[in-house]
Design a protein around this nucleic acid. Sequence first.
DNA 1: GTCTATAGTGCGATAGAC
DNA 2: GTCTATCGCACTATAGAC
Lengths: 197, 197
Amino acid sequence: MSAPPEADALQEPRRGELTAAQSRVIAAAVVLFSRHGVGGTSLQMIADEIGVTKAAVYHQYKTKDAIVLAAAEAELASLEAVIAAAEAAPSRTRARDLLITGMVGLAVEDRRTVNTILTDPVIGEFFARHEHFRDVMRRLHGLLVGDDAGAPARVRTAMLIAAISGAVMHPFVVDLDDEVLRAELECLARRFLGLPG
Amino acid sequence: MSAPPEADALQEPRRGELTAAQSRVIAAAVVLFSRHGVGGTSLQMIADEIGVTKAAVYHQYKTKDAIVLAAAEAELASLEAVIAAAEAAPSRTRARDLLITGMVGLAVEDRRTVNTILTDPVIGEFFARHEHFRDVMRRLHGLLVGDDAGAPARVRTAMLIAAISGAVMHPFVVDLDDEVLRAELECLARRFLGLPG
DNA sequence: GTCTATAGTGCGATAGAC
DNA sequence: GTCTATCGCACTATAGAC
C-alpha cells in the first residue's frame, strides 16, 4: 500500500507496519473479540464487519492466530506508548503520575475492549509466550515500585493493573460519564499507591 | 449458539440441586471455560474431559447455553455464600472484614477460573440479563459502602472487585504461594477501603 | 485487494438402542 | 445414564479469476 510519507508519523507502533486493509481487519477484530471472545469470533464475522469476504481477510493474515496476535500487540502498543512517555519523565514522581494518568485514560477510552481482550484465555497464552509482553510488564512494574521484586510489591502492581482495567467495564460504572469515571479512577489509583492526588 | 434472549428467562435452574452427573459436567465446563474461553470450548471437549460422549452430556443439559448458565451460577453461588455470611455479622465493621477475607479466599482458591470466567463476554451477557446477578452485586456494594450510590462509591466498589479477582491471575503473582498471596491481597484490599489491618 | 467457489473438518444437536 | 450414528451447518483455509 502507498501512504503519504509526511502525514502518518503518528500511528506507528514500531513493531510492524500495518497497511490500511490490515488496520481495518484488526480494528474489527478487536471490537468483535471484546464482544464475543476470541473463540466466539469467526473470520466470517470479521469479514462481515468490514464489508468484505473471508478470502479478502485471509489475504491480509494467513491464519486466525495471526489476527489474534496482531490484535493483542495493537492493544499492547497503546500501553507501551504510555510507558515510554512516563520513562522519559524528569523525576520518578512525575513518571508515576504520567503512568497513572495514561493508564486510566487508555482504560476509560476503550472501556469494554481493554479488559475483555486482556483477560481472554487465548490472548493470555500469546502474552505468556511472547517476550515483548513480559518486557512491557517489567517496565511498568519498575515505574510503579522500582526494583523491588518482593511479593508485596508484585501483588501491589498486579492489583493496580487489574483494578484500573477491570473497573471500567464493571456494571456499576457503565452509566458514568467518561470524565467522571476518569477522575475517580485517577484519584483512587493514586491513593492506592500512597501518592498525593 | 446465541439463542433468542427472551426464551431462557423463565427457566432458571435451581441452585444446589445438581445431580452427580450434572456436577461433573459443570466442573469440567468451568475448567475448560477458564482455559479456552466459553466460545473456544466445545461440547466434545467437555465430554472428553469427563470421559463420556457428547450425547451423554446432552442428556444432562439440552443446550450449550444451559451449561454456560449453570456454570456461571455455580461460580456466583460461591460469592453469594460469602456475602450471606457477611450480612449475618453483628456489626458493619465485622461484615466488611468477613467480606474481604471471603472474597480474597475465593479468588486465591480458584485463581485462573474466577476472573477468566467472570470477564468472559458470553458469561457477561448472561449476567446482564439475569436479575439474580444484579441482586448479588447490589448486596456486595451495600456491605462495602452502604446505601451510597454516588459515582465515587460505585467506582470504589468496582475497583476493589476487579483488583481482587483480577490480581490473582496476573503473571506477576503466578509463582506466589497461596498463603502469601492471600495475606498480601487482604492487607492491600483493607488499606484500599481505609480499614485497619 | 477483492472476489467466487470449494476443500475438509468439527460444531451443536437429535434419534433410538441398551 | 450412556452409547452409536447421523444430520445440517458453520468453520478455517486454499485456489484461481478479475
